[in-house]
Simulated assay, not measured.
Amino acid sequence: MDERLFLQVAKAIADPRRLAILEAITRAGEITCGELARLFPIGQSTVSHHVGILERAQLVNVRRQGQYAIFSARPETLKMFLERLNSRLLDVAQTTAQNGPKEGGP
């Protein structure tokens, strides 16, 4: 996973509403925009906006069926993100253990 996609995924799931939408999509397996809008107190255009961000972050697939957009989760992207995050944090922990914590830092 390249740095650009890593940061896109981090930003996408940092929003509580988008994370809840991703959870709903994952739980459902496949779900339409209208079905998502009924689960949340927001309009379909807002759902579409959030799902668009999730799609650009490669966290969901969008399949067209007639006039409907059907969403499904892409767990492989989240798995790659978590592996990259874990690796980055382990690198920081190892560097800190070798060099000691930076002064003035948390």
Rank of each mutant, 00 (worst) to 15 (best):
R4D: 01
Q98N: 01
R27P: 00
G52V: 10
E23D: 10
Q98C: 03
L36R: 00
T26I: 04
P16K: 11
F81D: 05
A57H: 03
A14Y: 10
N99L: 15
Q58G: 05
Q44K: 13
Y68V: 11
Q67C: 02
R88M: 15
L5P: 00
A28K: 06
A10F: 00
Q67S: 15
T77G: 07
M80P: 03
D91A: 15
E55W: 02
H49C: 03
L90D: 14
P16Q: 04
R27K: 07
E23F: 08
A12E: 04
D15P: 04
G43D: 11
I70H: 01
R84F: 08
G29T: 06
N61M: 09
R38D: 09
P16G: 04
S72T: 15
A10T: 02
I13E: 00
A24Q: 05
R88Q: 12
A28P: 04
G100E: 14
L54G: 10
A93F: 05
Q44S: 08
T77Q: 05
H49M: 07
P101M: 12
L59M: 06
A24Y: 01
M80Q: 12
L85T: 05
R38M: 07
A97M: 11
R56Y: 09
Q98F: 06
V60E: 02
R74T: 05
F40M: 06
K79W: 02
A20R: 07
T95H: 11
E30H: 05
A20S: 09
G100K: 13
Y68T: 08
I31H: 12
L89W: 03
G43S: 10
A97E: 11
Q8H: 12
L36S: 00
C33Y: 14
T95L: 13
V51L: 15
N61E: 15
E30C: 01
H50F: 06
E3W: 01
Q8N: 12
D15F: 04
P75T: 07
A73V: 13
L39Q: 01
Q58A: 15
G66I: 03
L78R: 13
I42P: 00
N86C: 10
P41T: 09
V9Y: 08
G43K: 09
N61I: 10
I21N: 01
